[in-house]
Structures are given as structure tokens and as C-alpha cells.
Write a protein that binds this DNA or RNA. Structure first.
Length: 602
RNA sequence: GCUCACAUGGCUCAGAGGUAGAGCACUUCCUUGGUAAGGAAGAGGUCCCGGGUUCAAUUCCCGGUGUGAGCUCCA
């Protein structure tokens, strides 16, 4: 395989630059490694720009970076470009690639560059952001672009790409600026990888929880209800309460106490907590008589009030309160998206009040809790520590101490994590849990946040050994994040094929004819007694039709009951996953269901 | 919040400046069927809301609401 760039001091340097500067390093060949793809995709973005320039001569280009999902280029054109034009641009790109243009690089001073691009305001805008005195220009054929690189040696290697999306994007991501046209694309080193990626995108579309949610009647949104307010349909509510029950037990086992705070609290409390000042724009307020109330966007304040209800001794710590806390947040309309982003949602929220010495053990315990749950659902996950954001309460010193405490807990237990600078919540640093679903997408769910600020603001305390007043540390944590979002993710993860322990309906019972209905009902009752939901398909429809309906409803197990079964007290089981059929005695069947339901506990 | 697009029975969608259709679902009847769609009949829509243009608007225009894609934001 040909070398396309080198690695020098951990940086990717293209061959053009390496030759100009006379440096050498480890070879990067054209494969699907991160480094190779970065170069390839960057050059593909340029090739796209070259093609666009040919097709739309008045196009002016802004920036065309490589991003996680491929690359894009922002540009300005007078003509309307639509989804249908992407094919045309792709064709032009392939034609250009066939010409095997060598990609040349040269440097000029910024002054010269400004002259060169004098009638290209977008390029001038790009230069405004570059601090360097000298800038590099890349040239392929008669197309030139201001660019930092790195690039391929030639456009020839660009073959397996696809333009995926066209959209508007604000210049510089600032909505007060003009909107440019943005085309997204993806490129790979070989055909199979491109194909696999495109199949993944198609699969993701098929798994869209909004679609499956409607098919399986899990939840719905209605215009008259309002944007961002989901309504839970019976099947969805069953699934959700299964999750809630499992999680309830898991919390109790770990020493958490269920508590409940009010939906809205007086604004004074939100001023004390800092939410009023830092989060107020996302909160809903109302008045009762003359007093202003804020609908809770988080559950911490309620839990703090529970904590304050009695005096605490160091002997009581850690104290762990949990609540399926319903919160309301004013999200921007454009951000709303199925169950993933709503305005009312329920967090599996908990707050741990502990001593400084207990922090590490508590963090580890929570991380272990997360591990257990995510493994149960077959999610891989990564952890990330987020540090102080721009808008924050509390002194730098406190932030430093608490951030360090998180790192220590992770380090001393050999846990791997990444750092997200400035990504913390306004009241403390956090560990985010990012899970990877069945088709490789990452989602942010759980979060563990360390908080020295709220205990300070509310002057929380406990009695120490010497009968002195000590301020506890507060750990906020959610594992699923929110039921809404998590169920949305689960739906896409399983493509609606929920495992038995979480499925809205565990068993579909199909009696062959009228006389078999009584046995069906008898079985359904036995199932309920052991905590399994079933649905009897006894409508006046053909047997085939009812089996088909059950299948389409994604019920994990279908049983058919007729004369034979009643006579022998057996069950004809049809496993939806592999469409296999087999017979069991009633006792065997019930034991099997019992096992499948009980095999999970966090 | 911004840009663009879309909005027709419960669902998926056709359709035209002269007040509407299909399939699925639903109801009733026939059929009592052994593992992915049996048959017949029927009911159901202020064509998202408000304003404007027009003799006439669900259809064209404006505003709102909702949905989608993207920016931004995030559980």
C-alpha cells in the first residue's frame, strides 16, 4: 500500500509538507486507520469543492474540515442546490479523481494570500481566524484552496466516498451570521468499508425509535399536547415500569432510600442553588398568589430539603436518596427529537451525601452500578471526565479539588477515561458514561457529578466525631440518564426486539379456536402471577393472521393453544427470534418464562 | 431560537382553485382455522389553526402551531 503521509511528533504530516521541511517519520498508508481516514477525507472534501466549483462557478468556500462522521464543506452559491444534486457532484468528483491530479502545496505570506483571495470574502473570513503569518495553499489541477492540510499526494486515491447530506449551516456556527450551504460526505480506503458504513446508516434509519415507537405503540406526541411532551401508550408504559421496578430493587440493594420532592419550588430556593442565575433561561416559572415558583429542572434541591429534614451524624453517611424525578426544561424547539430530546422527562436520579473520605468509594460503587446495568443491556461504554465550564458556580480551588477527586477515584482503580475540557455542569465536574449501541453509535446516558457548591450554598452539615459541624459532599448521579432517552436508545439498540425481561409483552397467546380461550386466559393469569405480561390473540381472524400480527408486534414468544395442548396440558411454543417451534409441558413452559424474567437483576 | 421543507380519516400515503380518495387499522356478518395477510358489508375527515386574495380555498399568500433535516444545545 502506498504511503500517503507520515506521523511526526504525533502529528499527521502530509508528504508535501514533509518534503518541503525535510522531515521524516513513521509512514501512514492508505487504510481505514484514523490517521489515514483523516487525510483521505480532508482531500475528499477538497475534491468535492473542486467539483462544486466546476458545476457552480460562482461558489465561494468557507471551511471543509474532517468530522467524526466524515467531512463537510461550507460554501456560498447563488443557485439552489438540493438533495438531488449530490449525485451530480459525486459524478463530477469521480471524473476529477480519474484525472489523477497531483496535490501540490506551497506557502505564501498572509498578505499575499489576502491579495490572492481579495474577491473571496469567505476565504478572507477564514484568514481572520488564522494567527500564523504564513499560510499554505493546496492546488490540484486549476483548483486552489487555502488549507492547513494534511492532504493526499494525489486525488487518484479518492474512490470510495459518498455525499450523504445537504444542509444549511451558519458561518462560524453563529446564528447571527449568514447561512451557508453545507454538504456532508464520507470516504473510506476501500469499497467494503464504505458499503458497511452506508448499510449502518440505512440500519439506523430502520431502527429509528420514533418509527418503531409508533409501530409498537410505545409512545406518541400530539400537536395539541405540545412539542416535547411525550405521552406513554400502554405498551410503552409497561416496558417503562419494568425498567423502573428492576431499577428500584437495584437501588434498595445498594442502600438508596426512595424520596420525592415537589414538582415546583419557590424561586428563592433556585436563587440559593444558583439555578435561577445559571439555568433560569431553561426553567419554567409560575406564580402562586404573589410568590414566584420554578418548576424543577433538576431534583437536587428537593433532595437537599430531604437531607435537611433531620440532623445527621457522620455515622449515617453516606446517605443516598433516589427518585424517578420528573423534570422540565425549556429546550429549543429545533433541538426536540423524539424521545431523545424532550421538555419533560424523568431521571433515574440520586444524590449521595458523604464525607470527603468516602468520595472515592462512592464513585467506584456508582461506576460498578453503571457497569452492571450497561452489561445487562449489552452496551459497551466509555467514561469521560468533564471539567469546569465557562458558566459555573464555585471557586477555581473547589473545582480543582473536586476534579482531582474524580480523577483519583478513577486512577486508583485503574479505570480508563478521557477528558472533556470545559464540559462540566455549572455546579461541578462530572464523569459521563457514553454507551455504544448495537450498530456502533455512541450515546451519552449516565453521569456522576461531584458537587461541593450546593452543600456550601445550602450550608449543609453533619455532626463529626468531635461533635463539630462538617459540610458533606454531594454526588449527583443518574445511570440511565432519563427513562425517555434511555428507552429511545434501547429501542434503536434492539430494533424493537426487546429481550424478554424488558419487553412490553412477554408472551403472545394464540388460541386456535373459541373453545381454547379459557385455557388461554388460565395461562395468562398464571403468567401475571409470576410477573409476565401476555396478550391473548383471540379475535375473529384466521390463525395465520393472528400469528402474523403477534410476530409483527415483536412479542418475543408466541404460544399456540389447541385441542392437543389442552388434552395433554402442553404448550406449542414459537420463538420469534429464530422462528423455531417446539412443545413443552405447561410446567416446563412456566419455569422457562420465570427464568427468563428473573435472569436479570442489577 | 435560526434556515429550509412538510402538515389530507387512528396509521402510511394519493389528489385537484369548484368542500376528497387508496391500503392498513376499526365495526358487523360469514368463516372455527394448527404456525406470517380467509371473505363480504359498513362506519369514520371543519383536508393542523387564524387571517388575506378570489364569485369560490383543503389547494394560492401571510402569521401561528406541530413534524423533519441542519446549525446551536444537551439527559
Amino acid at each position: 500500500m502506498d504511503t500517503i503521509a507520515i506521523k511526526y511528533n504525533d502529528e499527521i504530516v502530509d508528504l508535501q509538507t514533509a518534503a518541503a521541511k525535510g522531515i521524516d517519520g513513521e509512514a501512514i498508508v492508505l487504510d481505514n486507520s484514523d490517521a489515514a481516514l483523516e487525510v483521505l477525507r480532508h482531500s475528499t472534501a477538497h475534491l468535492m469543492a473542486q467539483a462544486i466549483k466546476l458545476l457552480y462557478p460562482d461558489a465561494q468556500f468557507f471551511v471543509g474540515p474532517v468530522v467524526k462522521e466524515g467531512f463537510y464543506y461550507d460554501f456560498r452559491v447563488s443557485e439552489e442546490i438540493g438533495e438531488g444534486d449530490l449525485k451530480r457532484i459525486e459524478k463530477q468528483m469521480l471524473a476529477l479523481a480519474k484525472k489523477k491530479y497531483v496535490i501540490e502545496r506551497y506557502e505564501i505570506s498572509k498578505g499575499e494570500a489576502k491579495k490572492k483571495f481579495a474577491n473571496d470574502p469567505l476565504k478572507l473570513a477564514v484568514m481572520e481566524r488564522i494567527p500564523d503569518e504564513r499560510v499554505s495553499i493546496y492546488k490540484q489541477g486549476d483548483f486552489e484552496d487555502l488549507c492547513r492540510g494534511p492532504h493526499l499526494p494525489s486525488v487518484q486515491a479518492i474512490r470510495f466516498f459518498k455525499l450523504t447530506k445537504i444542509a444549511g449551516a451558519y458561518l462560524g456556527g453563529d446564528s447571527s451570521n449568514e447561512m451557508l450551504t453545507r454538504i456532508y460526505g464520507i470516504a473510506f480506503a476501500d469499497k467494503a468499508s464504505l458499503k458497511a458504513h452506508l448499510e449502518m446508516l440505512a440500519e439506523a434509519e430502520k431502527r429509528d425509535h420514533r418509527k418503531i415507537g409508533a409501530q409498537m405503540k410505545l409512545f406518541a406526541f400530539r400537536e395539541e399536547v405540545g412539542a416535547g411532551f411525550p405521552i406513554w401508550l400502554p405498551a410503552g408504559a409497561r416496558l417503562r415500569s419494568r425498567l423502573e421496578e428492576l431499577l428500584f430493587k437495584a437501588h434498595r440493594k445498594r442502600g438508596y432510600e426512595p424520596v420525592r420532592g415537589p414538582e415546583m419550588l419557590r424561586s428563592d430556593l433556585w436563587k440559593t442553588s444558583g439555578h435561577y442565575q445559571n439555568y433560569g433561561e431553561n426553567m419554567y416559572f409560575t406564580h402562586i398568589d404573589d410568590i414566584e415558583f420554578g418548576v424543577k429542572p433538576m431534583n437536587c434541591v428537593g433532595h437537599i430539603k430531604v437531607y435537611e429534614d433531620e440532623l445527621h451524624s457522620y455515622r449515617d453517611l453516606p446517605i443516598k436518596y433516589f427518585e424517578y424525578g420528573v423534570v422540565h426544561r425549556h429546550e429549543m424547539t429545533g433541538a426536540l427529537h423524539g424521545l431523545f430530546r424532550v421538555r419533560e422527562f424523568t431521571q433515574d436520579d440520586a444524590h449521595i451525601f458523604c464525607t470527603t473520605e468516602q468520595i472515592e468509594a462512592q464513585i467506584i460503587e456508582v461506576v460498578d452500578f453503571v457497569d452492571k446495568i450497561m452489561k445487562t443491556f449489552d452496551f459497551d461504554y466509555k467514561m469521560m471526565i468533564s471539567t469546569k465550564p465557562e458558566k459555573a458556580v464555585g471557586s477555581d480551588a473547589v473545582w480543582e479539588v473536586s476534579t482531582q477527586a474524580l480523577k483519583n477515584a478513577m486512577d486508583s482503580n485503574g479505570l480508563v477515561y478521557a477528558i472533556d475540557e470545559g464540559g462540566g455542569a455549572f455546579y461541578g465536574p462530572k464523569i459521563d458514561i457514553k454507551i455504544t449501541d448495537a450498530i456502533g453509535r455512541e450515546w451519552q446516558c449516565g453521569t456522576i457529578q461531584l458537587d461541593f457548591n450546593l452543600p456550601e450554598r445550602f450550608a449543609l452539615e453533619y455532626n463529626g466525631e468531635a461533635n463539630d459541624k462538617i459540610q458533606p459532599v454531594m454526588i449527583h448521579r443518574a445511570i440511565l440518564g432519563s427513562f425517555e432517552r434511555f428507552i429511545g436508545i434501547l429501542t434503536e439498540h434492539y430494533a424493537g426486539e426487546f429481550p424478554m425481561f424488558i419487553a412490553p409483552t412477554q408472551v403472545a397467546i394464540v388460541p386456535i379456536a373459541e373453545p381454547h380461550n379459557a385455557y388461554a386466559k388460565e395461562l395468562a393469569d398464571k403468567l401475571i402471577d409470576m410477573g409476565a405480561d401476555s396478550e391473548i390473540f383471540s379475535k375473529n381472524e384466521s390463525l395465520n393472521k393472528r400469528i402474523r400480527t403477534a410476530e409483527k408486534g415483536r412479542v418475543p414468544m408466541i404460544i399456540v393453544l389447541g385441542d392437543e395442548e389442552i388434552e395433554n396440558k402442553t404448550i406449542a411454543v414459537r420463538d420469534r427470534r429464530n422462528r423455531e417451534q417446539y412443545n413443552l409441558s405447561e410446567a416446563e413452559f412456566l419455569t422457562m418464562i420465570q427464568q427468563k424474567i428473573n435472569e436479570v437483576n442489577f
